[in-house]
Amino acid sequence: MSEVAITGFAKSFDGGESFALEGIDLVVNDGEILVLLGSSGSGKTTLLRAINGLIQPDAGRVTVGGDDIATLDATALRRTIGYVIQGAALFPHMTVAENVGIVPNLREWPPERTAARVDELLQLVQLEPDDYRDRMPAELSGGQAQRVGVARALAAEPCMMLMDEPFGALDPVTRVQLQDEFKNLQRSLSLTTVLVTHDMTEALLLADRIAILASGDVAQIGTPAEILNRPASAYIEELLTTPRRQAAELKGLFTS
């Protein structure tokens, strides 16, 4: 149902002179975490935003659950897809509960149902509802804000999640903790997820499959093991240098 298929996708930001992305074919399977990996400017965010219609392709098409999204109502579609961006982007004039309740509200759920759902989600992202419900975003730490951001994306029981560098702006300890928690959450809900990052270590730890974008194209797509064992190019080999070295060093520390 929530399978995403991107075919022949192309996007230009200068009226067709050059293409940020061209001839992209990509499938996201039901229940998996697909990580889009690339350096800045590689088009990974563009591709992510094409899935919920924030960006219209110049060529090709995007289908969600078999339907071409060009034929769907964009706002209605977005209300069925969770969306998390870097730094959480909580609305500063709304309480935590109001932020989490936005999409249920837009979908005109009865208030009691929304309130119950908000509490359930705050518990899920490990924020005690009675403590956090009425706080303003300014009163939260970065990690807490990002947890609320995830809860907000999950609120209206979306069929899938789109995440744009969701753990990017966090300190290393919080980041690892949230990555773990999210991975568990995703498994238990078997939530189809597309996650954008430029951090190879994060990709290797979270992904079911990784799609590496370079020069406007998909350079390699595969499971973390496939990427690690058979990098398709020198560039990908280079991307793996840091995680490998870190892993080796850590291993050395543990065995010594």
Binding site: T75, L77, R78, I85, A89, L162
Partner: peptide, 15 residues
């Protein structure tokens, strides 16, 4: 208004 907030609002499905 901070562009990321508008981006988030749009992404959540606000008209």
């Amino acid at each position: 208004i901070d562009g990321s907030l508008i981006e988030a609002a749009r992404g959540l499905g606000m008209s």
